[in-house]
Amino acid sequence: MPLYYFTINNTNGTFNIVLKKNNCEVIARSEDKIRGDINTVIEDINEVASSKSKERFEISTDKSGNYRFRLKRENGEVLLVSEPFANRGVLEEVIDEIVSTVHESRVEMVNS
């Protein structure tokens, strides 16, 4: 099942990206408000995520003991941060789903 990007255009010229499953479950979101061309950023996310290079997905444990991933560019810039997952296995399944379907993702834009 393909994923989709829900983008929020802010009034100050920045935007946020939310990566969702088709059932509207949020998987990950941009850490900060982003400036620049939204299509370029989404293309970068697709390229990094579909590179089959799982080391781009940095898995960590948050203060609550939940697992999260950060999708990073080669230069270390964080593109997306996942929602918390109680089970590492489920998180790894989500990463596999992103790697295998992100190139099919559609984009839905809204203004805030």
Rank of each mutant, 00 (worst) to 15 (best):
K33Y: 04
I8F: 01
N87C: 07
P84R: 08
S64L: 09
G65W: 04
N23Q: 09
N16D: 15
L71N: 04
I34C: 00
A28G: 12
N46R: 15
N66W: 00
F15R: 02
E47L: 15
V18Q: 11
N22G: 11
I45N: 13
K20R: 15
N75G: 03
I27P: 06
I17H: 08
D32R: 09
Y67T: 01
D32S: 04
A49F: 02
N12C: 03
E74C: 08
D96E: 14
V26E: 10
K72L: 15
A28F: 06
G13V: 06
T7Q: 03
R88H: 04
E58M: 03
S30R: 07
E93P: 00
N9Y: 08
I27D: 07
L79S: 07
E47D: 07
K72R: 14
D37M: 06
F15H: 05
I95M: 04
A28C: 08
N87W: 01
K20A: 06
E92Y: 00
V99S: 08
S60V: 03
R29P: 00
G36I: 03
R68C: 05
S100L: 05
G36Y: 06
T11H: 05
N66Y: 02
G76C: 10
S64Q: 10
I8A: 05
G76T: 10
K72A: 13
A86I: 14
E77C: 09
S82G: 08
S82H: 06
P84K: 11
I45V: 13
S50A: 15
S64N: 06
V41C: 12
